[in-house]
Design a protein around this nucleic acid. Sequence first.
DNA 1: TGGCCTTCCTAGGGGTATTAGGGTGAAACT
DNA 2: AGTTTCACCCTAATACCCCTAGGAAGGCCA
Lengths: 197, 197
Amino acid sequence: MARAGLTAERVTVAGAELADEVGLDQVTMSQVARRLGVKDASLYSHVRGLDDLRGRIALLAADEKTIRIAEATAGRAGRDALVAFANAWRDYAHRYPGRYAATQISIRIDPELAAEAPGPRRAVKLTYGMLRGYGLAEPDLTDAVRLLRSTFHGFVALEAAGGFAHERSSQQSWVRALDALHTLLERWPPSREGDPP
Amino acid sequence: MARAGLTAERVTVAGAELADEVGLDQVTMSQVARRLGVKDASLYSHVRGLDDLRGRIALLAADEKTIRIAEATAGRAGRDALVAFANAWRDYAHRYPGRYAATQISIRIDPELAAEAPGPRRAVKLTYGMLRGYGLAEPDLTDAVRLLRSTFHGFVALEAAGGFAHERSSQQSWVRALDALHTLLERWPPSREGDPP
DNA sequence: TGGCCTTCCTAGGGGTATTAGGGTGAAACT
DNA sequence: AGTTTCACCCTAATACCCCTAGGAAGGCCA
């Protein structure tokens, strides 16, 4: 009997492809095994179980997305960097919807596994770096990073959920949202009275 | 044998409660049936299946959330309305995490069922109404509505996923995000060159 | 060649979704 | 009151899924 040559990474990639094709919640051990030409029990030598597989898909996606963003923003600053960052984010979500959905479940990933993945940490650094040109200082910087991530994620999540009716294309709203965020970052409002540090 | 007195709505509510307790993806026909003291096959007289149940939970959540927002924003305008709107949204997501998660799957809900639910339509109206005081005209109005919804949803989604580390409380970032959105709405940037309507 | 580890298999237990069909309560009609 | 009707809930059966346990067989090294 020929060996299939499985490995944790190959199983993860097969799961990620399946997630993009049929949705993350349709990713099952049986389907992944079928795609790899193997019985489902064989996967358990490489992956602890379904939750572990989903966690690995999430970390794979986080790494891939971070790399795309890093390439897109390299050598850019200010508005250019913001637009490149945001478009790379959205492109990834559109192109790999299943993988992207996996990134939303980060709460219950094996910490040991997550510690090795550079994606999330690097993503945070990238976002801070992108904002360098706007001259924000802590804690405004952290607040701005969180606002941007929220808006980017929220936009693509609502797009994926069909939350935007078709009167106006979501592409146009996206461009205008980036305009708005850029001007917002240029004139970040000072903290109002009564906000303790 | 005593009748359990099931109905589509009671099944939906049981599913919603279960979703809040154990997570939406742990909501199963068997668990819901157990909670209602009934065999799982009995549920199929009231609900078409698991997907249908999830769709009903989503519509229930949309209605509930819209009502909370409507109550919170009644009689308010400008910044007050914005803050009340956003806090009602976030409170709902925190208090009913399973129901809230259900609202993200709106893409595959039975259209016939969705047509009867007033929640989504009313939510859109509410958002437009809240922005009335800022003096925006179409298509900026639609773009602003989408930006706000994206940010609100993205923030609570990232909070739920554990996306915000604990250096700075997410509550503080939330307050500052609302500040930022308010000033942004007051000075909505004009459309840049080359944006066709 | 012989031993050993890894890989993949078969077998099986337990859970879930869904359909088909039957019995029984309770209200409605005569 | 007796009967009919219908909605409700059940049992039974099929098919899929996750996961564990234990066995056979390929590849590596001595």
